[in-house]
Each structure stands twice: as structure tokens, then as C-alpha cells.
Nucleic acid binder design. Structure first.
Lengths: 151, 151
DNA sequence: GCCAGAATGAGAACGAGTCTTATTCCTGAA
DNA sequence: TTCAGGAATAAGACTCGTTCTCATTCTGGC
């Protein structure tokens, strides 16, 4: 995710995308975007609801509206809940490190040069398998500092 | 996955692991392993059940037994069903290309040199984020040959 | 202010995956 | 070979994250 306080340009971009998708940028949706943007890592539903009076069904519905408009991305994990984050082109390309013990997820940007070479190689390999227009998802698994200490 | 007809060594290894986990290598479990091994790509539950008279609950239970014994790996995807494949140390380290149109999954091994450098870099980056004992999951998304043609 | 269409909230419905239980199968000791 | 006890199986009930329904509320244009 990697966004602090959401800027007004961010909101403008999102509004434009929603309008293009025939949707309004309502207060509820703005609120969701704020939550995602401030979090700095993919957020699961209970965290979104915690301490806020939001209707569960509205949150799910709005997240999927935002996803269809290309504003939000849904991640599937081994956990019980899906996780949501702002689309990469609204923030910056990044990866995730996931603690294989406690499940904590953390954003992790990579050196640009590394990304460039990675894309190059992947594109070549995928082409040999008959795939085109390739993008990638790269996640890391390991023990976070906390869990490494207490074991 | 990347295994053709399962060898008897494969079955022996698996039997050993199950015994170590206090489990038997029953016919049902052997049958599941055969299905996974022959498929050459991660298999979802409906494909396992299709045309075979297997109890859904037994399949789920046995897959999770096999997973706990380190024989099978469960993948989560955007699809409705999870996908299962034989553990990498029983086959070979590989990645997946997923068609973003039709959802087809295909195995994809990478050049060894590429993997070596990838691991090196990832280990370094993860360490700066406080993570240790890092492994990775790298999936590719793109249009498969079929879908690219019909669009 | 009114109206039509969109968004919201509450709860019902759905379904992949898990659990329960009665039955069947294995294994190894006699 | 037989038998007993523990493990595996099958069928279906159950769980719970997510989606759907529908009555109500909001919004933006006239």
C-alpha cells in the first residue's frame, strides 16, 4: 500500500475512476479509501469494522465497487479473511512479506533495478509458455522479528 | 507440479512421511497422490471428484492430512476452489502462470541461475524488514495462447 | 421541494470447507 | 485364520466469510 495521509489528488483520481465506471464517490467510499490509504498494509475486514459503525454488507459491497473501478485490489491469503489494498497505480509497485507464524502482512518495495530485470526475465519465460501481457505477483514468507524472538 | 506417472520411489517417500506423521498410506490417499502427480498442474476439488466416486469430505480430509504431512501444498487463488499440488520437494521448484481471462493455471519452471539470484536478493531485502528464513511465491498473470487468439 | 435512481443497512441466503457419527477397513497378536 | 481395537471412510450436518435481497435513506437535477 504505502501511502500515508491521502492527498486530495488521490481522491480526485479515484472520483474520476468511479465516475468512469458509472459510480459515485460517496462518503462511505471515501471513508474506506482513507482507511486503506492510512493503513500502509493490506487490511482485512475485521480491522475495517473494528470500532467503527459500518454495515458489514456495505463494506463488502463498496469494496467490490471500488475493485471493479480499479481503485482497490483484493488479495487472497491463507487466513480466514481476504485483504484489501489500494490499487498499485495509486500508490507504488510493491510486494508483501508475510509472517508464516502469526500471519502479519507488511508492504515491501524492491529496488527498481531488480524489478526491471525481474520483469524482463519473466516476460521471456512466460512467452515460451505461450502467455502474453504478463504481470507478476511476488510474495515473501518468513518469520517476523517478533515471532523469531519468541521461539 | 511437473510429474508424470508417479514412480514407486515417490510412493515410498510419501509413505515414510505419513508414517512419521502417524498416518497410514491408504488406497484413497494413494489415489489422490496419483491424481495430483499425473495432472502436471494444481488441481481444484471439482476436477478431483469429476467422474470418480469419491466422498467430498474424504477428499478434503485426506488432502489436509497429506498437507500436514508435508506431501501436498494448498494454493489459494481468486477462484471459488482452492488448488492442491504435490509438495515442491517431491517434484521440483516451479512457479505458476495464470490466465487472467479463463483462470487456467500452468506450471512453469525457471532457469536455476535466475532462482539463485532471486533468492539472494529477496533474502537481503527481507532481512532489512526484520524477516528471517525467507521463502518466496512468485506467480505470473497473463493471457494464455487460447484467450489471446479469441479476442 | 420533488422525483428518480443510487446507496445504505439489516438480515437472509449461499457455498466452500470442516466436523460429527455410524460404519467399514486394517493390522497385528493369538 | 480369526478377532479385537484403532484408524479411515462416507454422508450429511454445520460453520462462517461473503454475497444477495429488499425496505429505507440519500443525492443531484429540475
Amino acid at each position: 500500500m504505502i501511502t500515508g495521509v491521502p492527498t486530495s489528488e488521490l481522491h480526485d483520481t479515484i472520483k474520476t475512476r468511479l465516475l468512469a465506471a458509472g459510480q459515485r464517490y460517496t462518503n462511505r467510499r471515501r471513508q474506506l479509501v482513507e482507511i486503506l490509504a492510512r493503513s500502509g498494509k493490506p487490511v482485512a475486514l475485521p480491522e475495517i469494522l473494528r470500532g467503527r459503525s459500518l454495515a458489514q454488507s456495505s463494506v463488502y459491497r463498496n469494496l467490490s465497487v471500488l475493485e471493479r473501478a480499479g481503485v482497490v485490489r483484493r488479495l487472497v491469503t491463507d487466513e480466514d479473511y481476504g485483504r484489501y489494498e489500494l490499487s498499485e497505480d495509486l500508490t507504488e509497485h510493491h510486494h508483501h512479506v508475510i509472517c508464516s507464524n502469526c500471519g502479519t502482512v507488511q508492504d515491501l518495495p524492491m529496488p527498481a533495478e531488480f524489478e526491471r530485470r525481474l520483469d524482463q526475465t519473466l516476460d521471456r519465460v512466460a512467452r515460451t509458455a505461450g502467455f502474453a501481457e504478463v504481470s507478476h505477483r511476488l510474495d515473501l514468507f518468513g518469520l517476523c522479528a517478533d515471532c523469531a524472538e519468541h521461539s
